[in-house]
Design a protein around this nucleic acid. Sequence first.
RNA 1: GACCUGGUAGCUCAGUUGGUAGAGCACCUCCCUUUUAAGGAGGUGGUCCUGGGUUCGAGCCCCAGCCCGGUCACCA
Length: 513
Amino acid sequence: MAGRMMSRRIMGKASFAELKDASGRMQIYINRDEISSDAEGTMYNTVFKKLLDMGDIIGIKGEVFKTKVGEESVNVKELTVLSKSLRPLPVVKTDADGKVHDAFSDAELRYRQRYVDLIVNDHVKETFIKRTKITNSIRDFFNKRDYLEVETPILQPIPGGAAARPFKTHHNALDMPLYLRIANELYLKRLIVGGFDAVYEFSKDFRNEGMDRTHNPEFTVMELYVAYKDYLWMMNMTEELLEKVAMDSNGTTEVKIGENMVSFKAPYARVPILEAIKIHTGFEVAGMDEIALKEVCKKVGVAVDETMGVGKLIDELFGSKCEHHYIQPTFITDYPKEMSPLTKEHRTNPALTERFELMVNGKELANAYSELNDPIEQRERFEEQLKLTEKGDDEAMFIDQDFLRALEYGMPPTSGIGIGIDRLVMFMTNNSSIQEVLFFPQMRPEKKAVEMSEDEKAIFHILKANSPMLLNDLKTQSGFSNKKWDKTIKDLTKKNLAKINNTEEGLFVELGK
RNA sequence: GACCUGGUAGCUCAGUUGGUAGAGCACCUCCCUUUUAAGGAGGUGGUCCUGGGUUCGAGCCCCAGCCCGGUCACCA
């Protein structure tokens, strides 16, 4: 067997050590005379005792036996050094009481050096294994129903399908801007137009917005579209899916999330959003216009501003007064039209749409619609969004003409859903931070300390006191010879510590960034 | 973006009123043949986040900044 040495106890001519591989840890027993072929016991005394450290990777051959204490161990007959660790490994030890000593727990180091985190913190590896179990469970559920997993563009000319600020980039050959997708919804619907009955995609989406413990600039959403279904059908499917995911990942439908026990056992409560607002604020807001809604917001202490339309106001009311109440999985349904430009009008109330969001532990986990498939109405809804943009809402949606053209060829009645995979994994693994469920969460780059020579420091200090300054003045003040000056200023600019600007008034030197 | 913590050895952390920089683990040296959180003895190891200031003297006090975390704001 082979693995990384995670602990070592040397007792004269015999030693115990622990080897760790992907499947776990195993104790090994090493005896000087059994692994050394020469009289000096080189392999044991020099190699094992002196040259090897914790964290080194070794291979062994030997026989399994039980020690006096009853611990299953391998009696090593042959030892091979496979790989040396040059950096000391943080050693985490757990005592008989289960108390952890010297945990590698600094969040910054753990995220920046996830490889170390994974070596020494076994529970971290468990989280990511569970993450894969969850996505496998979802794939399994869909594939058994013959839903087709597809891939759609990440680089999009028009960032559509959601309301968010995109990352922008540029394609040189085509000389055009491209955006990293904020959603893949409009592409999946094009595929439904194309004749697939059900398509899904695990989509890495990108949003250029704030970061906190539930938001990372890149994150994963699973989106599914099924033709000839509506949002009522989708609620039933969602219940079934989440019940299975909970069973496959945790072996139970009862999951502990923070302080709460959450049951993913179907069915889930269904509450219309206006009903929820009535329950938690006491106001009946159905049919209210913008002015009346702003009144209500003021009364219950929700901040409003000029750019907010009816949709956003209701969203705010729900977000700040209701959302956190829904701990057990609950479908919040029938959102007002203004908030849902891609959703089909409600079958009994034209002010509403056939949409639901699934709330779990007070957070949104999924968002689904009966999709709007009327191209004429879709165009009108987009135009309303455009008006919102003009009003100052910088997140209202762009108009995607090609998507409208696709709809004009006819899209069957369809229901779609997006499930936040990172959030789902956070729930199923009881983590409160998205950084704990992403291998490599986004971090600020590490600051590198730039080393300066004495000469460089001297010039840097003069410059720092008076930047920008004329190049000739700086040279004179430094008192350096021509050659020394030339070398020093070139090195400083190379390290981006200084910058030379050629302007009409002459050559200036300023501090770099 | 605002506010609040924190930043000291490879890791986890102490550091008193401002007066020589500390512990445990890791690492190095020595002793020990079935041990167990970490057997015993000795040793190496520091940009106390950075830059200014106050002071005879700063890890500690003051100012500015950097970075992590948290709360809020923003954000389907």
